[in-house]
Design a protein around this nucleic acid. Structure first.
Lengths: 198, 198, 198, 198
DNA sequence: TCATAAGCGAGACGGTACGTCGTGTCTTACG
DNA sequence: CGTAAGACACGACGTACCGTCTCGCTTATGA
C-alpha cells in the first residue's frame, strides 16, 4: 500500500525521518517558510523521495502533524474526574504549545483540501472524543457526575478552548488556566443539576 | 499617517475597496489561492497601489480581516445575561463561519510575524474582551451574577470555543451549540457559588 | 511651439537645466540606469514638467545629447589640411569620450524610434558633414588635394572610426590614434592619384 | 563549467535554442521591447531556465550576440589583398546590418557592465583582429604590401567604419561603400611608401 | 557471479506568484 | 496657467517555490 497522509500508516525508518525533519522545520519556520527542498536537503534525500510518499507539501505537513500528536491518545486514570480533566488539560496544553505552528498550518490547509478534513476528523478528532468520553464515563461509573451531562455537542470544550488559547498570541494557556477552566467552568457544568430537556 | 495593517487606520475609499476585494477573494479561494495580482485586477488597481499600502500579501490579508471583523464590536443589551450571551454567541458564530478561511490564514501568519501578533492582540482581542466584560458587568449590576466570577483568565471561553469549532472541519457551531454552551456550561459556571479564593 | 527633441529648439533656462541634469546623469549611470524621476528630482522639478517638454525618456535623452554635442560644429582653420584633420579628430575624440554612454543610449533608441533617426540625421550628421566638406574644400582651394577625392560616401571615415573606437571598450582613441589615422590612412587616401572613374 | 555570457562556452542544445530565440526576438523588436518572458515562452521554457544560465537580460542578450557573430571568424583567402578586403567588408556589412539592434543593445550594456567589456574584448575583438592580421600577413607574404604598414592601431578601420555606418540611421554600408573604402582609403594607405618611423 | 531492476541523490525543468521598479498619465493644491 | 508633489495603471524584472521529470549510481535479488 502506498503510504499516504490520510491513512493510519506505519512509517518506515526513512519516512519517519522525513516526517521528523518536516515537523522540526515546521516548528522553526511555520508552514509557508517551510520548503520541500529544505526537508529533502536536511534529510539528505531528494525531492522525488518525498513526493513519492506524499503527493503534496500539504499532505506531508499533515502527516507530520499526525505523527506529532499521536502520543496524546492516552487517558490519564487518576481516579477522580477533576484529576483526569486536569491531567488531560495539561497534556493538551503542552502539545498545543509545541505544535502551534503546525496546527495553524494544518488549519490553513483544511480550507482547500477536503481529504485532509476527513482525515483529521476521523483520525484525530474521533480519537480525542473517545478519550474524553472514556474519562467522563468513568466518572459516571464512579458516581461523580450524572450520565445526562455528557453531551455530544460540548465534549470538546476542554481541548477546544485550550487549543484556541494556544493558537492566539499573547495568552498561551498555563497550568493555572487549566485549573481555572476545570474548577470554574467544567466542574460546575458537569456537576450541575440537570433539568429535564424536552 | 501612513496606512498600515498594524495600526487602527481609517481607510480611504480606495483602500476600503482593496480590502473588500481582498476579503471576498479570501472567502472564495482561501489564502494561498489568493493572488495579489487578482486583488489588484479586480479592484482595477495595480500591484504597486496595493503594495504602497501593505508591504506584503500577509499584511494585506490581515488588514482585510481586521476590517471584516470590525462590526462585531457591539454589545447586545438584551436585558438579561443569558440573552446577551446567546446574542453574542450567534454573532460570533456567523462571523467565524464567514471568515473561517481568513482566520486560518491570519493564524498562519502569526507564526512568523510578531507585528501581526501585537496588532491582533491590541486591536482585536482587547476589543472583544471589553465587549465581554461589558456584558458581564451589566449582569453584575443587575444582580444576575456575582462580580467574583468575572475571571481575567476565562472571559473568552464563549468566543474561543465557538471560533475553535468554526475552524475545525465537520462541526461548525450552530444556534443549538450556542444555546447548549450558554445553558450547560457558561450559566452554571457564572452562577455557581463562588468559594473564597485566598 | 512646443519644444521637442526633434527640432532645433532654443531652450529656456528651465529646459537647459533639465537637459544638463539629464546629460550628467547619463554620463554617470548610462541610459538604462537613468530614471526620469531622478532627473526631475535633481532638477527640483516634477515629472510632469519634464514630460510636458519631451514626450518620452528617449526624446529627453536625445535632446540632452544634441545639446551636449552642439559645440563641435566649428571648423578648425589651422591653415593646412593635415592640421585641420588633426584638430578635428582631437575634438571628436574628446567629445566621443565624454559622451560615450550617451551615444550608446542614443544608438539604442534609434532602433525603435524613426523620428530620432531623422532628427539625428538632419541635425547632427548633416552638420558634421558640412564641417568636413568645408575642411576638404578649403584644402582643395589651397591646392592640397584634388577635388576628385571628395567622396560623398567616405567623408565620415575620420569621425566614424574615432567614434567607433570610443564606443568599444579597451581602446579609446588617443592623440596618437588621430595622428596615425590622419597620416597613415586619410592623407594617403586624399593625396592619392585619382584614377578616372567611369 | 557553468555556462556564462562572459566565457567562451559551448552551449547545450537547450541553451542554443534559447539564444536563437533571443537573437530572433532581438532582431524583431530590439533590446527594450524584448522580454525575458517572451524568450522563455517562445522556447517553451520557463524564466527560471533562462535565469539559471544568464543572470540578467543583458547577459542573455550578450550571449546571443556572441553566438550570432561567431560565424564571421573565417578569413576569405581570395588570393589577393584587395579581394580579401572586399570579401571581409561584405561579410561584415551583412552581419552588421543583420545585428544592428543587437550591437546597439550590447554597446549600451557596456556602459555599466565591465565583465561584458572584458568578454567582448577578449572574445570578439581579439578574434577579429587575428582575422585582419591574417589577411594582411598573407598579403605581406605575397609581397603585396610592406610589413611596416601593419599597424597595431589601425587594423580595424575596415570593420570599425563599416560597423559605425551600420549603426547610424540612413546610410547603411553597401557593396559600393566597401569597394570605395577598400580602393580609395585602405589600399592607398596600405600600399603607401612608408617613411621610416623612429 | 553477474545482470537486471528498483530505489535513490541530484538537480534541471515548466509553471506561477511574489515583491520591486520604471514609465508615462493624471490629479490636487499652490503661487 | 504653470508648477511641485505624488498617486496611479501598466508591465517587465529577477527570485523563489512547487510538483514533475530525467539522469546515473547504488544495492539487492534471480539466473
Amino acid at each position: 500500500m502506498t503510504p499516504s497522509a490520510t491513512s493510519d500508516a506505519v512509517w518506515s525508518a526513512r519516512e519517519a525521518q522525513l516526517l521528523a525533519v518536516t515537523l522540526r522545520l515546521l516548528q522553526e519556520h511555520g508552514y509557508e517558510r517551510l520548503t520541500v527542498d529544505a526537508v529533502a536537503s536536511e534529510a539528505r534525500a531528494s525531492k522525488a523521495t518525498v513526493y513519492r510518499r506524499w503527493p503534496s507539501k500539504a499532505e506531508l505537513v499533515f502527516a507530520a502533524f499526525m505523527e506529532g500528536v499521536r502520543a496524546v491518545a492516552v487517558a490519564p486514570h487518576t481516579g477522580c474526574l477533576r484529576g483526569d480533566l486536569l491531567a488531560l488539560g495539561r497534556v493538551i496544553c503542552e502539545h498545543a504549545r509545541l505544535h502551534a505552528p503546525t496546527v495553524r498550518a494544518v488549519l490553513t490547509e483544511l480550507s482547500r483540501n477536503p481529504a485532509l478534513s476527513d482525515a483529521l476528523e476521523h483520525q484525530f478528532i474521533h480519537q480525542r472524543k473517545e478519550l474524553m468520553i472514556e474519562v467522563l464515563s468513568e466518572a459516571v461509573t464512579r458516581g461523580d457526575i450524572s450520565a445526562a451531562v455528557i453531551s455530544d455537542e460540548l465534549w470538546d470544550v476542554l481541548p477546544g478552548y485550550l487549543v484556541f488559547r494556544s493558537l492566539l498570541p499573547g495568552r498561551p494557556p498555563t497550568d493555572e488556566t487549566v485549573q481555572a477552566l476545570v474548577d470554574e467552568v467544567l466542574m460546575p457544568s458537569l456537576t450541575r443539576t440537570v433539568t429535564h430537556t424536552v
